[in-house]
């Protein structure tokens, strides 16, 4: 793909922010302020923009903590935010370990079925019980994404390494 095609592709998708490569907490510190400003410039609704920003942070920290392709500082992946007249979309793509696919798929399918009351209950229960085995945070990230998004979809793509794709929509 030519550079100008890449440029046009991002514009046609409404992608106004895209980072691809090594994501570390240090990189996130460097970009998070400007992402927050960009999102707030596009829409002035505090509630909507806080949800978009929150989902962006959870997606970025998922890549930092769980991407299968890693350096000492963090993980390799792509995180992008787009906007159209329907609302915002936050996307994340990172290599993952195939052994973890089934349990992740099960977790996410369960979250997709839950209504907001159930998600709230699951969130509080997880807080009380503490993080599950293998979690590097509070174990709340996906529940938070499910709670704050209008809907989310995920996919596992072999290309040829296994990629985990998570896409969350945030609409007014």
């Amino acid at each position: 793909m030519d550079s100008h095609d890449f440029h046009k592709l991002l514009l046609s998708r409404g992608t106004f922010f895209c980072y691809s490569g090594l994501l570390s907490e240090e990189v996130l510190s460097a970009i998070s302020g400007i992402v927050r400003e960009q999102v707030s410039d596009i829409d002035h609704d505090i509630d909507l923009t806080t949800r978009v920003f929150g989902i962006f942070i959870e997606q970025a920290q998922n890549i930092i903590r769980y991407s299968e392709e890693r350096l000492a500082e963090g993980g390799i992946g792509t995180v992008a935010i787009g906007h159209s007249k329907e609302g915002f979309v936050v996307e994340a793509i990172n290599p993952m370990n195939a052994d973890k696919m089934l349990s992740l798929k099960g977790n996410l399918e369960e979250l997709q079925k839950m209504e907001s009351k159930e998600l709230r209950k699951a969130y509080k229960q997880r807080l009380r019980e503490g993080p599950p085995e293998g979690s590097k945070g509070a174990g709340l990230g996906f529940i938070e994404i499910a709670r704050k998004s209008s809907k989310f979809e995920f996919d596992f793509v072999e290309s040829p390494e296994l990629l985990f794709v998570l896409k969350a929509w945030i609409v007014p």
Partner: peptide
């Protein structure tokens, strides 16, 4: 204004 899920704990 905002806190992430790691801070919720």
């Amino acid at each position: 204004r905002y806190f992430n899920s790691s801070s919720a704990k």
